[in-house]
């Protein structure tokens, strides 16, 4: 496989604030690569540097064998970029937006229609509607169509699924997988851990740094603690009490279960006893498999200790 994106020791600060530091990643051609991290982790800054919109303070980025600083003009013809915020003309219709973006890349909608066909067909019934009046999911589909219309080599999607409903999110990821088969390299950022498993490889980002780059399953396997799920009627009280337990490493609420992790094997009876002594009598426990989020929190806390 060929390396198409090389990010090499990139630093960027906004005045006093360090946005990203020492970022180095290689991304392969036709890979679906995800940058996963909470808000403020520096994902958008990194995407803007890759999109030639920001200059790094130091370090360099090569995209499709072109330097993002020196060769930005040439590179811009090969990139498809979708910013984090919806950035199309809200007062133009779906059709007009698409024609406009095809026009500025000196191509036409019909020429690359095969690329966007699957996506565009879903919004085609609304093609006379103004982009500003579309739902969140449809807006993102339109934005993706516009970013794809010139057949870019690399597609940069900054938080494409933020603010989009669960069904649309799944559809969106399915489309990305289809696009990958066309040979387009796709780089995505997302704050949702559950989307990480949909990528070929992910980089976990936290406070401007990369904590790990690997296949999603490998990252989950990194999780070294013992994990059980706990639930009770009073979940808030339960979390607090669990954190008081001496062997507790972390306790976080994920959906209906509290993920309780510990360095040592958790003896359920002992934990149950402890909770009873704290006045919680209805605690249920079960063994659970760690997921991406457990691993992320684990890495994050390790990072803080370091």
């Amino acid at each position: 496989m060929e390396t198409i994106i090389q990010i090499n020791q990139v630093y960027k600060s906004y005045e006093e604030i360090r946005a990203i530091s020492d970022i180095s990643v290689d991304i392969q051609s036709a890979e679906l690569f995800g940058f996963i991290g909470p808000d403020g982790a520096g994902k958008s800054t990194l995407f803007r540097i890759m999109a030639t919109l920001l200059l790094p303070d130091s370090g360099e980025v090569q995209m499709a064998h072109l330097d993002t600083i020196k060769d930005y003009k040439k590179l811009r013809t090969k990139l498809g970029y979708m910013p984090g915020r919806f950035s199309l003309y809200q007062d133009l219709t779906v059709e007009e937006n698409l024609n406009f973006f095809a026009g500025i890349f000196k191509t036409s909608v019909s020429k690359n229609y095969h690329l966007i066909k699957d996506i565009y067909q879903q919004i085609e019934p609304f093609k006379k509607r103004k982009a500003g009046d579309l739902s969140g999911g449809m807006k993102q589909k339109l934005a993706l169509s516009c970013a794809l219309i010139h057949k870019p080599e690399i597609l940069l999607l900054d938080e494409p699924t933020t603010g989009v409903d669960a069904v649309s999110r799944m559809e969106f990821w399915e489309m990305l997988h289809k696009l990958k088969t066309q040979g387009i390299t796709i780089v995505v950022s997302t704050p949702y851990m559950d989307e990480a498993s949909l990528c070929d490889r992910v980089a976990l980002m936290q406070k401007g740094k990369i904590m790990g780059v690997d296949k999603p399953q490998k990252i989950v396997d990194l999780f070294s603690k013992h994990l059980i799920g706990v639930k009770a009627k009073n979940m808030y009280g339960l979390v607090n009490k669990l954190r008081e337990y001496p062997l507790c490493h972390s306790a976080y609420l994920f959906g209906e279960w509290i993920h309780f992790s510990s360095e040592q094997e958790v003896v359920k009876n002992k934990l149950q006893e402890f909770l009873r002594s704290k006045g919680i009598y209805d605690a249920q426990m079960q063994n659970i498999q760690p997921n991406m989020e457990d691993s992320f929190i684990d890495l994050m806390t390790q990072n803080i200790i370091e």
Binding site: T77, P83, R85, L88, A147
Partner: peptide, 13 residues
Amino acid sequence: EMGTMEVLLVSPV
């Protein structure tokens, strides 16, 4: 303000 400039910039225009 609308962010469309960002997209215009990342184009050969």
